[in-house]
Design a protein around this nucleic acid. Structure first.
Lengths: 328, 328
DNA sequence: CTGAAAGCGCTTACAG
DNA sequence: CTGAAAGCGCTTACAG
């Protein structure tokens, strides 16, 4: 009842074979201009669209990209999703959105991706077990970790240059005159949090500047709570480097609520440059992640791998840049 | 090369027919426990998964829900996306994410949805031309407008009870002693903005309370700019009803930046109850949209229509509730 | 309960 | 360049 119009119908109306209809709608096939015109006219009249499933069944490939996301509460990710959706639409690919509730991508989600035989997979903030990895590999489905690096070097991964950003941030704060500093971590299982920390601490150690670290979780509430605990118990550091913006906003609110003046009493710098960082209420100095470049890189890689699978594993690091506002 | 394992392979290993393998993996088909066990064992050993495309081709239905979104910059929508993804995953459905850049859903996006023969469509903040409507109808694809109501009554639509919420908000502010009020609109093409306004103004008119209206656009920056213009030129109203939260935050920041005390000098109430509304920096009084109930209603409707298409068009309005914080 | 067979709507060698 | 035909991996009447 659904999908009433098939290539056969078009063929009949146009007075040609079904194969010719197929050729018109399949890129790369040859048809004479004359038959093409006849077929296009008939197709238009009937409202024909090729059945994507029949097509996928026979070609054994799809034009679907699996997008695995977890942290939609962080505005960074909706932004990323939007950009991927837009970029892939231009290339004729659609997005299968898979929301995972776990740190690690769930078996069920992998099933979904494999069932739909996705052309490629982008994983934004989840990890992946090595058994899962094998499944994608066996099926020659390229996978990109976006904004995450795994411990193994068996994956293609697109990140901001986090270590270097940490270094630059340290130097920036030193130049601002900060003499002791605190790093508020994100989820410590993530490469992003660890690498930002590494670069940051490296410079402070070199310059013999006091370094403290407080564990948090990449959420607004986490940042708020962590800052409150510091304010209650510890001396105030001269500057905070907070592992991402949304958490930095929490830190900022906690400090302000406690009557601490920014940037006079202490300074705060975040990471990501989400929209809110530029809001008048915050005016957060931060490190901009080059989302566009990261997305471009990811799309280019996936399209290449789709065209010819190589399984290339590599970590691509794109440079971000400091955005100075009023919290430093 | 991909999708190496088919039902045939499993059948061979289990010593049964391919039809029996199919029956084991197709809900509702009957197989004896004995053959089922044999087949399951073989399937597990080989890592068999039914090919979703072959399945869809023959049954002429899919387990894909098309999700059309525009405004991912408003944190309300990522929240909605997450809840839909989670709810549909439980039902065995996947989400095809379609990002539209237009107010009206684009022809290209409709093509995508039709090509994938989606089982149902959810449209969150875009409109739809009537030609498009027909296409879904002809294909018996159920469509839900989520948080939007169209001018025509030809669609199923799930909303918060916006008119009533507007009334309640007016009464609430009157009880707080506000004697003249302003409504800051969202995008005026949307039903949500107009209906919230209607209920709000209705009560003010009844009580003969001064009402002003300022056009804005549902974004943070829009709220900020609109408030700034009011502050420059107009007398300050005793209370603002701002058509959504993200814009209310902009209004709040503009007021605060201008040295206006809240809730003493003026009051502000938003709409949605996004996470940020509860942040210490804002503590925004707002109207909570019952996302969960709205999602449940939508999912239930779609599953019904998928099971048996009726094309039922109805506007379902779910009641929200006032969340009082410190801006009123 | 089970198997053989038709058929879903396409793509793609293979002839002509 | 074009058509007839095989086949992708399933579901589903139809017999037995």
């Amino acid at each position: 009842m659904k999908q009433a119009i098939t290539a056969k119908d078009v063929a009949k109306l146009a007075g040609v074979s079904q194969s010719s209809v197929s050729r018109v709608f399949f890129d790369g096939a040859k048809v004479s201009e004359k038959t093409r015109a006849k077929i296009m006219a008939a197709a238009e009249q009937l409202g024909y669209r090729p059945n994507e499933f029949a097509r996928s069944l026979i070609t054994n490939r799809t034009r679907i990209i699996g997008m695995v996301m977890k942290g939609v509460q962080n505005p960074f990710y909706p932004q990323v999703l939007k950009q991927f959706a837009t970029a892939f639409k231009e290339e004729g690919y659609s997005i299968l959105y898979v929301h995972t509730n776990n740190d690690e991508i769930e078996a069920e989600d992998v099933e979904t991706l494999l069932n739909y035989n996705v052309a490629g997979v982008i994983i934004t903030d989840a990890a992946m077990a090595s058994t899962v990895e094998k499944q994608f590999e066996v099926n020659k489905i390229p996978v990109v970790f976006f904004n995450r690096k795994l411990n193994t070097d068996e994956f293609y991964s697109v990140c901001c240059n986090n270590v270097d950003a940490g270094r630059k941030i340290a130097e920036f704060l030193i130049n601002k005159g900060a003499t002791d500093m605190a790093y508020i971590t994100g989820d410590e299982k993530t490469s992003t949090s660890r690498e930002r920390q590494r670069g940051f601490q490296e410079i402070l150690d070199q310059r013999k500047i006091a370094y403290r670290q407080f564990a948090s979780d990449y959420t607004y509430n986490g940042g708020y709570q962590t800052a409150m605990q510091i304010i209650g118990k510890e001396s105030l550091p001269a500057a905070f480097f907070v592992a991402n913006d949304i958490m930095a906003l929490g830190v900022l609110d906690a400090l302000k609520n406690s009557g601490i003046k920014i940037p006079e009493d202490t300074k705060v710098i975040g990471f990501d440059n989400i929209d809110m960082a530029s809001w008048p209420a915050y005016q957060l100095t931060t490190w901009e992640q080059p989302i566009e470049k990261m997305v471009e890189t990811t799309v280019a890689y996936l399209l290449n791998e789709i065209a010819e699978y190589t399984g290339l594993a590599e970590v691509v690091e794109v440079d971000g840049s400091l955005i100075e506002r009023f919290t430093t």
